[in-house]
Amino acid sequence: MNDYRANRVAGHSYFFTVRLSGRGGTLLTDHIAAFGEAIRQARSRKPFHVDAWVALPDHAHAIWTLPPGDHDCATRWRAVKIAFSKSLGKSGAGAGLDTIWEPHYQQHAVGAGTDDYAVLVDYIHHNPLRHGLCAAPHEWQWSSLHRFIAAGMVAPSTPPVKSKRP
């Protein structure tokens, strides 16, 4: 079996945490299709590769790799947040909310040739388990782990990794 955590592409990679302003809600997973479409729209305007991701009820984690020489994460996340917010506004799901997203996001550059990348991919895929949302990582449907399982890069029964939060 391949090492799915070494599934890197050329360019600079970044780990992100983005949070909704309403902690404890389920807006993100309730409207996961709108979130996915917002990502697709942002990628069509300013390309990037989504190496790994997980969407939880009120926040998401991702590793993105940008094209070589491109470091503009802010424009991409702004586009995702705007598209998601507009979609919720059109559907009425955002009614009564002053703001949907926290204004900032956490970003961590993932150094080439370090163990950081593998640790962060594991962190992303095991995050629903840490939050008590499932009994095993493959049970959480909103995760790139399923893409790695389908490609034969990892078995669904991969045990949890005991790692510190980034």
Rank of each mutant, 00 (worst) to 15 (best):
H61N: 09
W64Q: 02
A42I: 10
I100H: 04
H131M: 05
L120V: 05
R78I: 09
D72P: 01
S157V: 13
V119Y: 05
K86L: 13
T99A: 14
A135M: 11
A60K: 00
L88H: 02
K46V: 13
Y117K: 04
Y105P: 08
G132C: 04
W53L: 02
A83F: 06
V110S: 03
A52Q: 07
A135H: 14
W142V: 11
V121L: 04
W101S: 08
L120N: 07
L88P: 11
G89F: 03
E37A: 13
G89Y: 03
T99P: 04
Y117I: 00
S85V: 09
Y123K: 01
T114V: 00
G92V: 10
T65W: 00
D51S: 07
W140I: 08
D98F: 08
D122N: 11
G96T: 10
S87K: 02
A33D: 14
S85I: 08
L145R: 06
A60G: 05
A38R: 12
L56W: 01
I39V: 14
V110E: 09
D98M: 13
P128D: 09
R40Q: 11
I124T: 09
R43I: 07
P67S: 00
A79D: 00
A34L: 13
A93E: 15
A150K: 14
G113E: 05
V119R: 15
A112T: 05
S87V: 01
T99H: 15
L66K: 10
D116A: 14
V121I: 14
M153A: 12
A60R: 04
